[in-house]
Design a protein around this nucleic acid. Structure first.
Lengths: 120, 120
DNA sequence: CGATCAGTTAGCCAGACGACTAACTGAAAT
DNA sequence: ATTTCAGTTAGTCGTCTGGCTAACTGATCG
């Protein structure tokens, strides 16, 4: 559990920046060149290049060079793996909340049956 | 500018550190005091305190002070909201991949019918 | 009361991050 | 062959991050 998970580190870090999330969102519509992907942002090109590199190194996107432009596209498996981890955490956690609910309901029933002193 | 980070920024950032993910994982088993949560790590207490604060500020966990100890617990809604965003991205994206698949299958069928040359 | 123990504050440090400008590379267009 | 244009490299700058130690606070135990 305390296992070293560099992929997750990089992926979550990649997702922690709004510019990078916006780039991902744009790529959800399909492949695009660096300049297409980058056009909406009021930022210097080298800055955006870095963002794209971060996304690429995190494995969330792939890119390839075609002529003088670079085409960017999402990488399905990587994004899915990130979600899997989160889903797993959530499942465990909701199971715990369900247990808690069950316990509270049980308490309530016992209280009704006994019709004794009530607490807030 | 780096000052006001929307929830997603803070949440993904919080998730990008393995120590913090381990703390979250531990809290999936139920509430625990700071020292319980913190015991498995060979790290100075102030360092771990910072991690807990990052998690708390991200909204992923809540804490309360009881006597001289601090109790930590997960916050369900926050973790869910993060997953929702990711799920949405993935859904859009998989829809796109499905379209692509359909297109590839279509190509394949046409190819079989035509019995023509294709690429690898 | 005094000691202890859980958590906290303050301050330090090296390295990563996110932004910038200026200058370079190399494919495409004229 | 030149120019243009997409992308790239290199270097700078201020802030944030994640780690540390040392010293403090304040609840609990003897």
């Amino acid at each position: 559990m305390t296992k070293f998970q560099p992929d997750l580190d990089r992926r979550f870090h990649a997702l922690s920046d709004p510019t990078r999330r916006a780039i991902l969102a744009r790529l959800c519509l399909g492949e695009a060149s660096f300049s297409d992907v980058t056009a909406p942002f009021a930022m210097a090109k080298p800055t955006l290049l870095k963002h794209v590199r971060v996304l690429e190194e995190s494995g969330l996107i792939r890119t390839r060079k075609t002529g003088r432009s670079r085409i960017c596209a999402l990488d399905a498996e990587a994004l899915k793996a990130t979600e899997d981890w989160l889903s797993r955490q959530i499942r465990q956690w909701e199971a715990r909340l369900d247990q808690l609910d069950a316990y509270v309901i049980q308490l309530y029933k016992e209280e009704r049956t006994a019709n004794d002193d009530g607490q807030s």
